[in-house]
Simulated assay, not measured.
Amino acid sequence: MLILSSSDQQYLLNMSEVIDAVAVGLEEYSAARTNTPLRTILPVSKSGGNAIFMPASAEEVGCLGMKYVSTFPNNRKIGKKVINGVVLFMDIETGEPLALLEASYLTVMRTGALSGVATKYLARPDSKTLSMIGTGEQALGQLQAILAVRNIEKVKLNNRSKQKALEFAAHIERLFPVTASVFDNPDEAINGADIIVTSTSSDTPVYTGEVAPGVHINAIGSYQPTMRELPTSVISQAQKVVVESRDATVKEAGDLLIPIQEGKFSVDRIHAELGEIIGNRAAGREDESEITVFKSVGFAAADIVVAKYFYEKALKEGIGQRVELGPAWSLSTIKA
């Protein structure tokens, strides 16, 4: 079995290639060619944590795997990471484990690639200004993916910690040909933006202002019914609200569930799954003035296609650590 660390994956990453891989996963899902159960969350009451299991298969493209992620907030008290995880990738023909991948980096880049695909189909082609609310772990993947599909020149940032936003601004100006500015007020940060990304763990809307005609929004932070990043007004006025999975979204996405409960939105107003747009079964952006929203809660079919991408590329380039799980055994090999 091949072990791929976060640094291995970073070496192998080509964001345009990951965007293409994720697009395949989205199209397969929306064509009903995957098996992607809703995530299973096991509370660990003594530790105050959650263990999350997300299996998936996409047989037509040779993908079988499962992502495991744990969130244990009390780890901060003992100096350990709050979030840990791995992706197990298996042989679709034999079920044998092929690779074990560190999941934090993979998840960040997978989530970025989801927004990259959505931006490709839903944002105006001439978009130049990106607003990012939240500059935590997800932000860099979001920026990399959007830069892969649009010629962004200006990045406007807002974060609860202004110092972290300033550090992120300096970091991305070193890495990319963009100018970055930090705003104390999120409504100022979204003013004049062509594309808005929200990547926070907020339970309440992260901005209150109206968005201009023609704006595209990627809302990728909240993933539970009680969490939301977008105000109801944005969801209700959007001409197109697009999701990865209708089934998952109507069970997990507070950004849509809360407006539905308020009577300001309805499930039948979801324009399409992103995979339906990729497969030409639904329209992407049709008008420069449309307000479009992509609401992501994450799904395992995207994780396993990205795991396959890293695994196959690692084999070609000789990257990763080989681990032998041991030969097959039988009763005859057991010694008394």
Rank of each mutant, 00 (worst) to 15 (best):
residue 230 L to T: 08
residue 126 D to S: 14
residue 299 F to G: 15
residue 27 E to M: 15
residue 87 V to R: 01
residue 150 R to Q: 05
residue 99 A to Y: 00
residue 329 W to L: 13
residue 165 A to K: 05
residue 332 S to M: 07
residue 53 F to W: 08
residue 290 E to W: 03
residue 294 F to C: 10
residue 189 A to G: 03
residue 62 G to M: 07
residue 2 L to P: 08
residue 119 T to L: 09
residue 285 R to K: 08
residue 126 D to K: 04
residue 52 I to H: 08
residue 255 D to V: 06
residue 268 D to P: 08
residue 282 A to N: 08
residue 322 R to I: 09
residue 245 S to Y: 02
residue 98 L to Q: 08
residue 213 P to W: 00
residue 183 F to G: 09
residue 48 G to F: 11
residue 142 Q to M: 11
residue 64 L to V: 14
residue 26 L to E: 07
residue 105 Y to D: 08
residue 64 L to W: 09
residue 310 F to M: 11
residue 47 S to P: 00
residue 158 N to D: 03
residue 162 K to L: 07
residue 292 T to L: 11
residue 231 P to W: 01
residue 127 S to M: 05
residue 85 G to M: 06
residue 130 L to Q: 02
residue 46 K to Q: 08
residue 51 A to Y: 09
residue 157 L to F: 08
residue 279 G to C: 03
residue 247 D to R: 13
residue 71 T to H: 09
residue 150 R to L: 10
residue 54 M to R: 05
residue 163 Q to M: 02
residue 104 S to D: 12
residue 115 S to P: 06
residue 198 T to C: 15
residue 148 A to V: 04
residue 308 K to I: 03
residue 122 L to E: 04
residue 58 A to P: 10
residue 223 Y to T: 05
residue 196 I to G: 07
residue 194 D to V: 06
residue 318 G to Q: 08
residue 324 E to D: 15
residue 176 F to V: 07
residue 312 E to G: 11
residue 332 S to L: 05
residue 30 S to K: 03
residue 162 K to Y: 00
residue 334 I to V: 13
residue 203 D to S: 13
residue 112 G to C: 06
residue 59 E to R: 15
residue 93 E to Y: 00
residue 264 K to F: 01
residue 72 F to L: 08
residue 42 L to V: 15
residue 231 P to R: 04
residue 302 A to D: 12
residue 186 P to H: 06
residue 106 L to I: 04
residue 109 M to D: 01
